[in-house]
Write a protein that binds this DNA or RNA. Structure first.
Lengths: 198, 198
DNA sequence: AATATCTCTTAACATTTGTTATCGAAGTAT
DNA sequence: ATACTTCGATAACAAATGTTAAGAGATATT
């Protein structure tokens, strides 16, 4: 317990100045939960109740398209946050589902707590702004990659960006993240391996 | 002049409470500029100096891929803001170029002014947070569309979303925005027209 | 242990999308 | 006005990606 709280303390302190008193008021509002592999922590159709800070493990955010296929939108790794921002902030039903891929320890942060942060921390609004901005940077890069890169290039960058993750995640999740079919991803991988040998 | 300032006043007031005194301190910091069609207001490689509020006209944000082709990343319409968020906020060189497509009146906001907003407006940080969050909503939808939709579906939604804009913008800009070639967009359009007649 | 289910690979084939080239129309500059 | 670009439509062809199906391993379930 202490351990997880230390980590989120550090996480917050890396964005804003925060006093011990402020932390004392805030930390008890966080709840820590452990989830097993494959657990679904948020269902589409429901309002996204929490902002999740990933202390340990990997989450997958996906949605279901009109053919019923799951499309992975995002992988949330250690020390990052995951949520359906719009559903969570506006309290509207979400189109996304969030699932645990690797046994995870999460810190759940409710909207009330987020609002508490905005109202009661000296730099609460700033924390919200900085986190939102960082999210923008990540997603701009991601969108940009889809525009600029071929599937092969996207596959290569994914491998570089998430070297260890690559072997922990079912391959077809990665395929949908890269916006290609599992069959085609398999083809790209075998192409890569062939050219390595020659 | 007064007119444009009124509009940005309303724009800000739609996000946060702001007093007359605060506005009096802030508005003089904004500068208004008119640009002709095709004017380039920010070059890639340079630091993005301003956050632009579009009072009138249309902007196009694009980048140049490895083959030298321009890829349109975003169209900024009336009453929205445009910038390379990361370049502007971190003061690092930008990969994007911003061009005027339809004769535009812009309010230029420097980073100093943004920082002035954060430091001196009672709800300055909140304004920054809300704008960043809105940006996230827009871009999440956009990214989502690229994942879920076929080029034909994306073309159809684009037409619905920007009905008037559609005929004002050169078609090949739209093609790169939709992530297809101009030739293919032309094909999709003619397919649509054929099926309408039958 | 046996069975069922899921995952990845591979192949053959279908479809979509990209590429190149040509033409005419419209816009821009001289 | 005249020439020069740019733009969009179209066609023929090429390449990339999707689809379907079959089989082999792995994993989970009974």
């Amino acid at each position: 317990m202490v351990n997880e709280m230390d980590k989120i303390k550090q996480f917050i302190a890396s964005y804003i100045e925060i006093s011990e008193e402020e932390l004392e008021g805030l930390l008890p509002k966080f709840s820590i939960r452990k989830y097993n592999k494959k657990a679904i922590i948020h269902f589409y159709g429901e309002i996204c109740k929490y902002l999740y800070f990933v202390d340990k493990g990997i989450l997958r955010v996906f949605f279901i398209d009109e053919h019923g296929d799951e499309k992975t939108f995002h992988f949330a790794l250690k020390n990052t946050i995951a949520t359906d921002y719009e559903s969570f902030l506006k309290q509207i039903p979400s189109n996304y589902t969030i699932q645990v891929i690797e046994e995870a320890t999460l810190i759940q942060i409710s909207l009330e707590t987020v609002q508490y942060i905005y109202r009661n921390l000296r730099h609460g609004e700033k924390l919200g702004r900085l986190l939102a901005e960082e999210y923008i940077f990540i997603f701009t890069k991601k969108t940009n990659a889809i525009y600029t890169k071929t599937p092969m290039q996207r596959y290569q960058s994914f491998k570089k960006l998430f070297p260890d993750v690559f072997h922990q995640i079912p391959q077809h999740y990665i395929a949908s993240y890269l916006h290609i079919t599992p069959v085609h991803l398999s083809r790209l991988i075998s192409q890569t391996n062939k050219s390595k040998k020659s």
